[in-house]
Design a protein around this nucleic acid. Structure first.
Lengths: 209, 209
DNA sequence: GCAAATTCCTGCATAGGTGTATTAACGTCA
DNA sequence: TGACGTTAATACACCTATGCAGGAATTTGC
């Protein structure tokens, strides 16, 4: 026997079209396991038991590949977050708005934990930090556009123009903390009760700001 | 003319002992400017207008160098944070405890913004993430040891054992958000008033948890 | 002022990553 | 079944970073 027992000496002929999703799956697995810095073309190829040119047939570039990954993973999350923000706008009670918002945020997080892990802990690569920043900035802008007017309507908070940036930063961090708690190993909270708990806490912080 | 006008063809003989702090300063500058992933031996050497072997004379290793940087930068910060936690424990009023704590936290942050920047946005390197995690874990443990008993004393919060991990995660994120707000470019808050504002908000969130 | 030790620079070997051209195997369709 | 186009592997050139020699310059001590 000339070499170690290889499962298959040659991978099946699937073509770039059918390999693309496999490449992104492998890249996500590596990013979650070893950090996004470990997502190299070689690592992805090894993860799917294939050689590097196969990956290059799917994406022109390493950056192109990771951008595709971020696009795919962030699309679902972004939609979930924006839904959470919009959905809770219709609710009349302020506290319910927050708790419902956090509830649906956490429900979305529980559905695709790997995607959340990626977007929360990512950004080691200077060539891609722009894209992370952009995703976060978009959510932040949406949050500002929703929370600002709501606070005027509900509590007519004084000096809101000055306070709002700080409160938004606070809000974003609270969302991250909530998701982190939910995805934590020793966690025994369900998305619903955790959403209510955190949402209500954030509500109290904002109400008398 | 054989080459471009070089300021000094040969750097002065200082020796490893006097170069060590210079190396760390250069490393910090690079980390803040381009991220910690850009802190390579070559980059540090170029930053201080010296060749790589000079850096290797000070630190055996790239990891050794960055660990020394983290040690130096985190030492002052850790002390400041622990002081903030302990100092606010003597205060009797709960709300004052939070506002005072955040005030001294932000005062420390304002003194060494680069260090904070490093520890908040760092961790791209798998070989060093352990150290980042350790620093954060230590602060987290201290926060837990302080906040847990205090909440029992002040409000006798029910089901605290289950809630505390979530609240601590929430608290840590709030600290990060506060520091981020303070270090933000368009920020017009001083450490004191921002500390009071955020501390009071966090207090309301915790009081009725 | 001059030797000697210290300090710095030039250059090299190694390792790992990128991106591409060439070659060999697979699949498919006639 | 057999030929042809598609697909994957091998192999290469290049780059950047690491870590380590040996030779040149500067301090320092006498």
């Amino acid at each position: 026997m000339p070499a170690k027992t290889r499962a298959r000496q040659r991978a099946p002929h699937l073509g770039p079209e059918r390999r693309r999703p496999q490449v992104l799956d492998a890249a996500l697995a590596i990013a979650v396991r070893d950090g996004i810095g470990a997502v190299t073309v070689g690592a992805v190829a090894a993860e799917m038991d294939v050689t590097r040119p196969v990956v290059y047939a799917c994406f022109s570039d390493r950056v192109d590949m990771v951008e595709a990954l971020l696009d795919r993973e962030s699309a679902a999350l972004l939609e979930a977050v924006l839904d959470a923000l919009r959905g809770s706008g219709t609710t009349l009670e302020p506290e319910q708005a927050f708790t419902e918002g956090f509830r649906s945020l956490l429900a979305a997080a529980a559905t695709r934990p790997d995607s959340w892990h990626l977007l929360l802990t990512g950004e080691p690569d200077p060539a891609l930090s722009e894209r992370f920043r952009a995703a976060r900035t978009l959510v932040q802008a949406q949050a500002t556009a929703w929370i600002g007017p709501a606070m005027v309507r509900w509590w007519n908070t004084p000096e809101l123009g000055r306070k709002l940036p700080v409160l938004i930063e606070f809000f974003m961090s609270s969302c991250e903390a909530a998701v982190r708690s939910l995805l934590d190993d020793g966690n025994d909270w369900g998305p619903d009760e955790l959403g209510e708990f955190v949402g209500s806490a954030v509500h109290r912080a904002f109400r008398d700001a």
